[in-house]
Deep mutational scan, measured.
Amino acid sequence: MLEGKVKWFNSEKGFGFIEVEGQDDVFVHFSAIQGEGFKTLEEGQAVSFEIVEGNRGPQAANVTKEA
């Protein structure tokens, strides 16, 4: 699992990017966010995740919000 911070997330469109120190930003789709209820992320929020190869390159999977 990697750790990063949410760079930005558009809850209307359901996607955004996660910043990872020393690496390129990683695309995140709302469907990759773990948990119940409305799936969104806040700018600057700490998250842990895995990287998988998507249709358009690397993207986040199994995203969990850090306490």
Rank of each mutant, 00 (worst) to 15 (best):
G37Y: 06
K5F: 06
E66P: 13
E36C: 06
F49K: 00
I33H: 01
Q23A: 10
Q34E: 15
I33F: 06
G22W: 07
E50G: 09
E42V: 15
G57A: 05
K7A: 05
M1F: 11
G22S: 08
D24E: 12
G4L: 01
N62A: 08
G22Y: 08
A46W: 15
F27K: 02
K5D: 03
L2I: 15
H29A: 03
T40M: 10
A60D: 00
K13T: 07
M1E: 08
F27R: 03
F30R: 14
R56G: 11
K13Q: 07
V47P: 00
Q45V: 09
F15Y: 14
A60Q: 00
F15E: 03
Q34Y: 08
E53K: 14
L41T: 03
S31Y: 06
Q59C: 04
T64A: 12
A46M: 11
G16A: 01
F15H: 09
F17W: 07
E12C: 07
V20N: 06
E12D: 12
S48Q: 15
E21I: 14
Q34C: 05
V26M: 05
Q59T: 09
A61E: 08
A67P: 13
F38R: 11
G37C: 05
T40V: 10
F49S: 00
Q23P: 05
G14E: 01
L2S: 09
G54I: 07
T40G: 08
F17R: 03
E50H: 10
V63R: 00
V26F: 05
G57P: 05
F17C: 04
P58S: 08
L41Y: 02
A61Q: 10
K7F: 04
G14I: 01
R56M: 11
E3H: 15
I51Q: 05
Q34G: 10
E3R: 15
K5A: 05
M1L: 12
S48R: 14
S48E: 08
V28D: 00
K65L: 14
G4Q: 01
L41Q: 01
A61C: 05
N55M: 13
E43L: 15
E53Q: 14
E36L: 09
F15V: 08
E19V: 13
S31M: 09
E43V: 13
Q34L: 13
G44E: 04
G57N: 05
V26R: 03
V20I: 13
V26C: 05
E43D: 13
A61Y: 11
A60G: 05
F30N: 04
G54T: 12
E21K: 15
F49R: 00
G35Q: 11
M1N: 10
G16P: 00
E19H: 14
T64G: 08
F15I: 08
F9M: 03
S11K: 15
T64M: 11
P58R: 12
S48C: 05
F38E: 07
G37H: 06
K5V: 07
P58D: 05
I51K: 08
T64E: 08
K39Q: 14
Q34A: 12
F9C: 02
F38V: 08
V47F: 01
K13W: 09
G4T: 01
V63Q: 00
K13H: 12
G37S: 08
D25S: 07
E50A: 12
T40P: 03
G16M: 01
E53F: 14
L41R: 01
V26A: 04
E3G: 13
F38N: 08
F9T: 02
E50T: 12
F15M: 10
V20D: 02
Q23G: 11
F17Q: 03
E53C: 06
P58F: 11
V52A: 09
E50F: 13
Q59P: 01
K5C: 05
K65V: 12
V63F: 01
Q34K: 14
E36H: 10
G57T: 04
G4H: 02
G54N: 08
V47N: 00
A46G: 09
Q45D: 14
K39S: 06
G35T: 09
P58C: 05
T40R: 11
P58Q: 08
F38K: 09
G35A: 10
E3P: 10
A67C: 06
E66A: 15
